[in-house]
Amino acid sequence: MNIAFFLLPKQDVVCLTPDTTLRQTLEKMEHHRFTAVPVLNQDGTYAGTVTEGDLLWFFKNNREITFENAHRHSLSEVPLRLQHQAVRIDATMEDLIKLVRTQNFVAVVDDTDRFIGIVRRSEVIDYCGKTILKDPAAHV
Score class of each variant (00 low, 15 high):
4 A>G: 08
4 A>H: 14
8 L>F: 08
8 L>P: 00
12 D>K: 15
13 V>L: 03
14 V>K: 09
15 C>Q: 07
16 L>F: 10
16 L>Q: 00
16 L>D: 02
17 T>V: 12
17 T>Y: 03
17 T>F: 04
17 T>R: 03
20 T>I: 02
21 T>Q: 03
22 L>D: 11
24 Q>E: 14
29 M>G: 01
30 E>M: 13
30 E>V: 09
36 A>P: 07
36 A>I: 09
42 Q>T: 12
43 D>M: 09
43 D>T: 08
43 D>R: 07
44 G>C: 09
44 G>F: 14
47 A>T: 15
47 A>F: 14
48 G>W: 13
49 T>S: 14
51 T>H: 12
53 G>R: 06
54 D>T: 02
56 L>D: 08
56 L>Q: 06
64 E>L: 04
68 E>V: 06
70 A>I: 04
70 A>S: 14
71 H>G: 15
73 H>G: 03
74 S>G: 14
77 E>A: 08
78 V>C: 01
80 L>C: 00
81 R>E: 14
84 H>Q: 13
84 H>V: 04
89 I>A: 14
90 D>Q: 13
94 E>N: 13
94 E>G: 05
96 L>S: 05
99 L>T: 09
99 L>R: 12
103 Q>W: 12
104 N>V: 09
107 A>E: 13
110 D>G: 09
111 D>A: 13
114 R>L: 09
116 I>F: 10
116 I>C: 07
117 G>H: 07
118 I>L: 13
120 R>S: 04
123 E>Q: 12
130 K>P: 00
132 I>M: 02
132 I>P: 00
132 I>E: 00
133 L>A: 00
136 P>R: 00
137 A>P: 01
140 V>R: 04
